[in-house]
Amino acid sequence: MLKIQNLTVRYRREGHPVLYHLGLSAAAGECVALVGPSGSGKTTLLRSINASVAIESGEVWVGDVEVSSAHGAALRKIRSRIAFIAQKHDLVDRLKAYQNVMAGALGRWSTAHALRFLVWPQASELEEAREALESVGLAQKLKSRTTELSGGEQQRVAIARALVQHPLVILADEPIASLDPDTAAQVLELLCNLARNRAITLICSLHQPDLAQRYFHRMLRIRNGQAVPVPTASARARRAAAVTC
């Protein structure tokens, strides 16, 4: 569902490229972990997939849409199907949990619809938010203020928001970096299960190779601007399993 060809990104003209002729493809329901040190280009890769980083050359395809050449309304439309989960701070802390969750629907709602929802949410919309929160195990926090949630709960609200986008791809940029180890493992497991069960491609950057090995189908490392596989026995086995299901 995600296909990247010859992707080159540099931040300064004539500068050293962060990504250089990078190729990557991932199937629906496949979970790919990006590991490696900070500054190796993991975030840049994630951000160039949803076109929030300007790319120099190459193509990024999500489904049958070329993100790298889309503009304006077409870009907004495809971005609404690419969910992004950041390390932290990406919820609006003055909104309630259900409002943050349904922000995931902003891409398919009209502006008038969005404004109406803020002051007058309908039962069906609240139900959709509740379902999304239920699938991350937080149904009871529907109307909580975001500031009252713990770090792990906030990250799960962000995942629920991603689900409301009906995404083809979820990009997660170090989603567990600010969580304690137990919560981190739970959040990763949740994320990978959701991706597998709903046939969503998951690309997730991580600092912990052991966790990556435990939950993901395969691991990649960015070296010299290219995505290089980090093979492990169990990863290979899981990948085979994913292809069959």
Partner: peptide
């Protein structure tokens, strides 16, 4: 704070919707 606003933009929301869900509540 720019991060929540960027997250909203990444959902494909219109500018007005981003302002209503992000900038306004954050600047309240």
């Amino acid at each position: 704070p720019p991060d929540p606003v960027r997250a909203l933009e990444a959902t494909g929301a219109s500018r007005v919707a981003v302002a209503a869900f992000g900038n306004f509540p954050l600047a309240a």
